[in-house]
Design a protein around this nucleic acid. Structure first.
Ligand code: ZN
Ligand code: ZN
Ligand code: ZN
Ligand code: ZN
Lengths: 151, 151
DNA sequence: TGGTTATTGATAATCATTTACACTTGATAA
DNA sequence: TTATCAAGTGTAAATGATTATCAATAACCA
C-alpha cells in the first residue's frame, strides 16, 4: 500500500503535480477498494470519511488528473456514470471486465486476452493500438447455478 | 433500405410495438448514416429535416426502444454522450471500433475477432458470454502518415 | 360511433459533471 | 522574516444529457 502510494507520488512529481492530502486520501480509497468499480460520487463519500472537508469538485479534479497520468482508467458500463479503475501495477493495457446482465456484478480479467487480436488489427487495419476496452456482457457463474436450480 | 425497414417493422410487431411515422423517420436516419456514430441530439437534428414536428423526447424514446430490441446498440466513447449504432444485419454480436486518439475518427470492424477469446472466457471463467464491447484506442492510418511526414 | 390504449410534443425535473471564483497553502526570493 | 506567486481547494452556480410529467393526439376495437 505505502509502496504504491510512493510510486504514485513519484508519477505525479514527474509531471510536476503534488500529492496533496486530498489527492492522497482519494488514492487511498482507490487502493483500498481496488476490486470495486466506484463512481466519482462513491469515491467522494468514501474519501469524506477520511477527510470530511473535501469537496466533490476536488474528487472529480483528482480523478481527471489520475486519468491523464494513466494511474486510473475511466470506464462506463452503460449506466449513467463513469467509474474509475486503478491500473494494475505495471500493466500496459487496461484489464477486461465481465458484467453480469442478471445480478450486475463485475468481474475482472487481468490476463491480456487481446495480444493476437491486436496484432491482427495492426496488420490488417494499419491501426496503431495504444490501448483497449473490452467488456463481456453475459451470465456469471453464480446466476447460471441459480437458474439451473430453478429448473 | 426498404427491405431493412420492413424487417425492423416486423421485429417491432413481434413485440407488439408499432412503426409509427416518427419511429420510421428515426430508423431511416440510422440507416442512411449507418457508418456514423450519432448522438441522440445528432439524430434528432437529422430526423427534424424529414419530420420537423418531432420532439427530442420521442427520439430518445425510440432509441431506447430500438436498444431493447437489439436493433441498435448504445455505445459510449468517453465523451459525455451516448451514441447509437445499428446492428449489422444478422449479426449476433456488436461490432468493434477503432477510435483515433489524435483526430477522433471512428472506424468499424465487422469481422468478429473475439471467437477464440470468448471460448476461453466461457471455459476458464465459467462466464456465459451474451455480447461484448471492444474498442481500440490508438492512431489511425492517416494520422500515422501525417506524423511520419512531419518528421 | 364511443371508449380505450399507445404514442407523442412540450416542458419541467433530475442527475452527473464542469466551471467560476474567492480563499488557502506552501514555496520562493527579496 | 515577509511579500509574492502559482497551485490547489471548497462552495455554489452553471451546464448539458437524459428522463419524467402531462395534456393532446392518433390508432384500435367493441
Ligand atoms: Zn450474475
Ligand atoms: Zn476493473
Ligand atoms: Zn487519426
Ligand atoms: Zn459502429
Amino acid at each position: 500500500m505505502e509502496h504504491r502510494i510512493e510510486r504514485i507520488k513519484k508519477q505525479l512529481h514527474a509531471e510536476s503535480y503534488k500529492l496533496t492530502p486530498q489527492r492522497e486520501a482519494t488514492v487511498r480509497v482507490l487502493l483500498e477498494r481496488e476490486e470495486d468499480h466506484l463512481s466519482a460520487e462513491d469515491i467522494y463519500l468514501l474519501v469524506k470519511e477520511k477527510a470530511p472537508e473535501i469537496g466533490l469538485a476536488t474528487v472529480y479534479r483528482t480523478l481527471e488528473l489520475l486519468s491523464e497520468l494513466k494511474i486510473v482508467d475511466k470506464i462506463n458500463f452503460g449506466d449513467g456514470v463513469s467509474r474509475y479503475d486503478l491500473r494494475k501495477e505495471g500493466a500496459a493495457h487496461f484489464h477486461h471486465h465481465l458484467v453480469c446482465m442478471e445480478c450486475g456484478t463485475v468481474e475482472e480479467i487481468v490476463e491480456d486476452l487481446l495480444e493476437d487480436v491486436e496484432k491482427k488489427v495492426e496488420n490488417q487495419w494499419q491501426f496503431q493500438v495504444k490501448d483497449h476496452r473490452l467488456t463481456f456482457h453475459g451470465i456469471c457463474r453464480k446466476c447460471q447455478q441459480n437458474n439451473n436450480e430453478a429448473n
